[in-house]
Design a protein around this nucleic acid. Sequence first.
DNA 1: TTTATATATCAAAAAAAATTGATATATAGA
DNA 2: TCTATATATCAATTTTTTTTGATATATAAA
Lengths: 105, 105
Amino acid sequence: MLKTLEPTQETFQQFEKKYKALADAKRLEILHLVQKHSSVCVCDLAEMIDMPQSKLSYHLKLLLEAGYLTVKKKGTWNYYSIHDEELNNVLSPELCCLFRNEDKC
Amino acid sequence: MLKTLEPTQETFQQFEKKYKALADAKRLEILHLVQKHSSVCVCDLAEMIDMPQSKLSYHLKLLLEAGYLTVKKKGTWNYYSIHDEELNNVLSPELCCLFRNEDKC
DNA sequence: TTTATATATCAAAAAAAATTGATATATAGA
DNA sequence: TCTATATATCAATTTTTTTTGATATATAAA
């Protein structure tokens, strides 16, 4: 059908969560760094961004819960990567360039 | 030049502000309602969204400062409208449909 | 001029989010 | 097995954001 459905309260709440995760300079920097390195473990990232580990883990958790990151465990290390589809759903194409490597950028 | 510039701390802070403004279900609803009505005054909007006027003015201020809205004064009334360009800069095309009327939606 | 209405803003209180330091768990390597 | 490292999580504190009710300002209408 062609008709646009009226967004519900729930819709707005879902986007609130998505945007809240992006509403922090440090988390945006984290996303950018993760993108740049494709896959990074917490300790390396903590060094790059100069942030205490527990703090970083907190921010990673928010980004993860919002769907912007994925994790893979390797031994004691947790490697984080960008979840492109989720980011693309939310960000304008111009902004995606900040968080993805694309030919067109 | 073709090379992508590294984003600075300042860049991330600017986007933090942009996303913060969107990181609230009520503000998203406000944006949607303003879009739907093209141009609305505070008192009408307050009724539509069932929100005390001072609270609404607070949220309108944040959206205005983030650049997503414009105001026009007519007598005692302040009419708010969507600032499309700003929204488009930040939102994915799919999301813009929530806040704009477009042929393709 | 007086009265009523629309709006923004302010200060105080409440609520939510972020930071910190400590600790628990799991794994790798000696 | 023992030790060291990577990570997540927790409780307490601090910071930021939101809400509330009151008030000031401006305009319109009587």
